[in-house]
Amino acid sequence: MATETADDVLSVHDLKSYFFSREGTLRAIDGLSFNLKAGKVLGIAGESGCGKSVTAQSILRILPRHGKTVSGQVLLTRDGKVTDLLALGEESSEIRRIRGKEIAMIFQEPMTSFSPVHTIGDQIIETIRLHRGLSKAQARASAIEILESVGMPHPSRTIDEYPFNLSGGMRQRAMIAMALSCNPRVLIADEPTTAVDVTIQAQVLELIRQMQAQLGMAVIMITHDLGVIAELADHVLIMYLGRGVEFGSVEQIFHNPKHPYTRGLLASIPKLQKGHTLVEPIKGAVPNPYDAPAGCPFHPRCPQFMQGTCEVTMPQVVEVEPGHWVACHLYGGEDQR
């Protein structure tokens, strides 16, 4: 979705990542395209099974063992040079250099990105030395600086703490510090605030916003919480069962949603504004991804289902207004095949 422009730092074309198991083939991502502009925040939203986390894993080439990216391109632009990450080996030195240095990632559970037997300082310092080639003393100074910039209290002391000694919020900060330690071009945040309380969530979001402005990096924010998207994102990609169903600026998505799924999602969430008293659920439930419906994957739940069209063919992606793309038969678009 979206036209390619010069200021794209990451562009994904027709990405397909499947999981193979005895139950069959799970098409976790089935033809996904989007662009990430330098210095902007792209929010990827969707419910369970929509493939938003697999997208991040595919970009970084860290899919679980039984998963495989079967086709597509992930183009990373750095200083005018374009690299297709999917053309690199999963364990090649090139992709290792890119992970952490060019594209960093933060997770829902901070403990997963730290080894429990090393201090957080050791791990940040190692990342810095690996990617920036600093001496040990320089790297340590740099690590303390970063910890301070993410609002870690007493950074020169916390640097020698083990991850399990830190509180949840502090761990989150340490993880962000590690991710940012090499000044990445792209930060992928996979549900970074799902496991924390609202007041801590506000802190983490504020921190990501600050660091993004300060370092000028592009961010992919993956979440199921449209509130988080509304707050942080410049552009939004709505996913459903492995496909992008709508892409646009945050205003376009929230104030002029086109896809029935996006509309349904927005209508189904209670809002905090005064006088908001009606929520309308989407009927049914997300289908089992092993048995995705034919045609448009949303058709069994769609209030604007058109017999004879929606269950037969996959809708093509069309641009309904500049920069606003929708994959829905309501807006024309011919058979994709």
Binding site: V198, T199, Q201, G227, I229, A230, E231, L266, I269
Partner: peptide
């Protein structure tokens, strides 16, 4: 603070 911190799916208001 809780009300203020609650993420709201309304970009303009937020």
């Amino acid at each position: 603070a809780l009300i203020s911190a609650a993420p709201d799916p309304e970009p303009r208001a937020v």
